[in-house]
Computed example of a mutant assay.
Amino acid sequence: MRRVMRSLAALVLLTAATLVGAGTASTAAADSCYTWNRTLSEGSSGEDVRQLQIRVSGYPAYGEVLALDGSYGPATRAAVTRFQQAYGLAADGVAGPNTFNRIYALQSPD
Rank of each mutant, 00 (worst) to 15 (best):
R2M: 08
R2Y: 09
R3T: 11
R3K: 13
R3Y: 06
V4W: 13
R6D: 10
A10M: 10
L11R: 14
L11V: 10
V12T: 11
V12H: 12
L13K: 07
L14E: 09
L14Q: 12
A16P: 05
A16M: 08
A16I: 02
T18L: 15
G21T: 01
A22I: 04
A22C: 14
A22S: 14
A22V: 08
G23M: 03
G23Y: 03
G23S: 10
T24R: 15
A25W: 05
T27C: 11
A28L: 13
A29C: 11
D31E: 13
D31F: 06
S32V: 06
Y34F: 13
Y34C: 03
Y34A: 00
T35G: 07
W36L: 02
W36I: 01
N37I: 08
R38V: 07
R38I: 04
L40T: 05
L40C: 07
S41D: 12
S41Q: 15
E42F: 07
S44Q: 07
G46T: 06
G46F: 01
G46N: 12
E47T: 15
E47A: 15
E47P: 11
E47V: 13
D48G: 02
V49N: 00
V49P: 02
R50I: 06
R50A: 05
Q51V: 02
Q51M: 10
L52N: 01
Q53G: 06
V56E: 05
G58S: 10
G58H: 07
P60G: 01
P60S: 02
Y62W: 12
Y62V: 13
Y62S: 14
G63R: 06
L66Y: 00
L68P: 02
L68Y: 05
D69N: 10
S71P: 05
S71G: 09
Y72H: 03
G73P: 03
P74F: 01
P74L: 04
P74Y: 01
A75C: 10
A75I: 02
T76K: 02
T76Y: 00
T76D: 00
R77T: 04
A79C: 07
V80Q: 01
V80A: 00
T81Q: 09
T81S: 09
R82G: 01
R82D: 02
F83C: 00
Q84C: 03
Q85C: 08
Q85N: 13
Q85P: 08
A86I: 03
Y87N: 09
Y87M: 06
Y87D: 04
G88R: 11
G88W: 06
G88L: 08
L89R: 03
L89N: 03
L89W: 03
A90P: 13
A90L: 14
A90C: 12
A91Q: 06
D92M: 05
G93Q: 01
G93E: 00
V94K: 03
A95F: 02
N98C: 08
N98M: 09
T99K: 04
F100L: 02
N101A: 12
N101S: 14
R102I: 01
R102H: 11
R102G: 03
Y104V: 01
A105S: 15
A105Q: 15
A105R: 12
A105D: 14
A105P: 09
S108H: 14
S108F: 06
S108D: 15
P109H: 11
P109Y: 07
D110Q: 14
